[in-house]
Write a protein that binds this DNA or RNA. Structure first.
Length: 262
DNA sequence: ATGCCTTTCCCAGAAAGA
């Protein structure tokens, strides 16, 4: 069994104790993380290596930052992808994508731009970014090698992926162009590995810190695992670990866990 | 209960998140 997971940490520095605890408790073989919020060389690699993992990090100072944490090998690391747009211009690149080979698996950890509001330049950037990552990955998705694109996509693929669609009219994350961009990404031959919810009917992965949204069940499913046929056919279980959203100083995202029998 | 926002810059308050 190989356990794959993705988790937006909202600062690896602040979340380090919880990250180490979660690695020990959940024992993923490969964990992709987002929003490390530290410079490339400031990731707490020693601490993570201390619990038996290798780390590849693509970071920048204050925002963004993605990493792959693996205990089944970590080779052929790629930081960013060819044709990756930047913001506010392409000369200003952000650390939002890292790819690696972990044992039998090729995997990418993505942190898709937020978009802010539909009339914000950041929204157009988000759509360009999704189109570009799709183009870039086209040649890498093979039917036979297990392959996954995981992370924080900042898109709720359907109305069932937000607590109340009425609250999202005119917002980002649910607009048709964003959802279509995810459809196009899946059209490379990737399927959305739909997780079990550990509580309730919706496997939400994000709850805003504000207004007690977690307490009120106001979540969104914006983090997911897209798997090619070779990986999808091997899935034995998938769930959102909402317990990781509880307690003191949690991230605002919960990990998505996928077990495969390769 | 799962609890009213949190993190970064850095030391004050703005920017960002989604």
């Amino acid at each position: 069994m190989v356990r794959i997971a993705t988790w937006n940490l909202n600062s690896v520095t602040t979340r380090l104790p919880r990250l180490l605890e979660w690695l020990e408790d959940s024992a993923p073989d490969v964990l992709c993380v987002q929003e490390t919020k530290v410079a490339e060389d400031k990731f707490p690699i020693d601490a993570v290596e201390g619990v038996g993992y290798q780390v590849a990090h693509h970071g920048q100072g204050r925002w963004n930052g993605v990493a792959i944490i693996s205990r089944i090998g970590l080779t052929d690391v790629e930081r960013g992808f060819s044709g990756q747009p930047g913001f506010p211009d392409d000369a200003t690149q952000e650390a939002r994508a890292i790819g690696a080979t972990c044992g039998p698996l090729r995997i990418w950890s993505l942190y898709v731009p937020n978009g802010r509001t539909p009339d914000d330049p950041h929204y157009a950037y988000k759509l360009r970014w999704l189109e570009a990552v799709t183009t870039s990955l086209k040649d890498e998705v093979s039917a036979t090698t297990p392959f996954a694109v995981v992370g924080d996509f900042n898109v709720a693929p359907t109305d069932a992926d937000v607590w109340d669609p009425a609250d999202f009219v005119g917002s980002t994350h649910v607009s048709e162009p964003e959802r279509q961009a995810i459809v196009e990404l899946r059209a490379l031959g990737l399927s959305d590995v739909f997780p079990r919810a550990l509580k309730g009917d919706h496997p939400f992965t994000f709850w805003d810190y504000r207004d007690g949204n977690f307490h009120k069940g106001k979540g969104m499913r914006i983090d997911f695992v897209l798997a090619n046929a070779a990986l999808q056919s091997s899935v034995t279980d998938a769930y959102v670990d909402r317990n990781a959203r509880k307690g003191k100083a949690p991230s605002d995202h919960a990990p998505v866990v996928v077990d495969v029998d390769l």
